[in-house]
Amino acid sequence: MILVGLTGSIGMGKSTTAALFAAEGVPVYDADAAVHALYARGGAAVEPLEQEFGDVVVDGAVDRERLSRKVLNDPDAMKRLEAIVHPLVGASRIGFFKEATEKGADIVVLDIPLLFETGGEKNMQAVVVVSAPADQQRARVLARPGMTVEKFEAILARQTPDAVKRQRADFVIDTGQGIDHARDQVRHVLATLRSGWTRGDEPT
Rank of each mutant, 00 (worst) to 15 (best):
Q137D: 07
G120E: 04
I10K: 07
Q51M: 10
D74E: 05
G120F: 06
D74W: 01
V71R: 00
L114N: 09
R41E: 02
G60R: 09
F53Q: 06
L72K: 04
L72A: 12
V149Q: 15
E82S: 13
D135N: 12
T160Y: 08
L49Y: 00
L115N: 00
I173V: 10
L88V: 11
A61N: 10
E150P: 06
M147E: 09
G200C: 08
G200S: 08
D106T: 13
V186I: 02
V189M: 02
V89W: 14
T160P: 04
P48K: 08
A31Y: 00
G8K: 08
G11A: 14
R187H: 02
P75L: 08
L6A: 10
I10W: 05
F152W: 08
A157D: 11
D30E: 12
G119A: 13
M78D: 01
I10R: 03
T198H: 15
F21A: 05
Q137T: 05
P87R: 09
T192R: 15
I10Q: 02
L81Y: 00
V56K: 03
G104N: 10
P113G: 13
R66A: 11
D174N: 02
E117N: 13
P27F: 05
Q185A: 09
R168G: 04
G104T: 08
K103V: 03
M78P: 02
D201K: 13
V57S: 06
V128S: 01
V127N: 00
P145F: 09
V129N: 01
V46C: 00
G8M: 11
V85T: 10
D184T: 13
L193F: 08
A169N: 03
D30H: 07
H86D: 07
A100G: 04
A22H: 11
G13Y: 12
T16L: 15
M78Q: 09
H86F: 13
Q185S: 11
M124W: 09
L190A: 05
S131I: 04
D111F: 13
Q51L: 08
K70E: 09
T175Y: 07
A143R: 12
I94T: 15
I107T: 12
V141H: 09
T160Q: 10
T160F: 09
Q51Y: 03
K122S: 11
E117D: 10
G90Y: 13
G176M: 07
E117K: 15
P27H: 06
G5A: 15
L6C: 06
D106S: 15
V189N: 01
I107S: 04
M147I: 13
G25I: 14
T17M: 04
Q177F: 10
G104P: 02
V109C: 12
A33K: 06
F96H: 03
K122G: 05
V57H: 07
D184G: 15
A169E: 00
I2M: 14
G60W: 02
K70V: 12
R158Q: 14
I94H: 12
R41K: 06
L88W: 06
L81V: 02
K165S: 05
A169T: 02
A132F: 02
H181F: 12
G42L: 03
L3S: 12
V164C: 11
E153L: 09
T160V: 15
S68E: 06
P48H: 08
R69A: 13
P48G: 11
R138N: 08
I173N: 00
K70Q: 03
V172D: 00
D174H: 01
I179M: 04
K151R: 15
H188G: 09
A134F: 11
D174C: 01
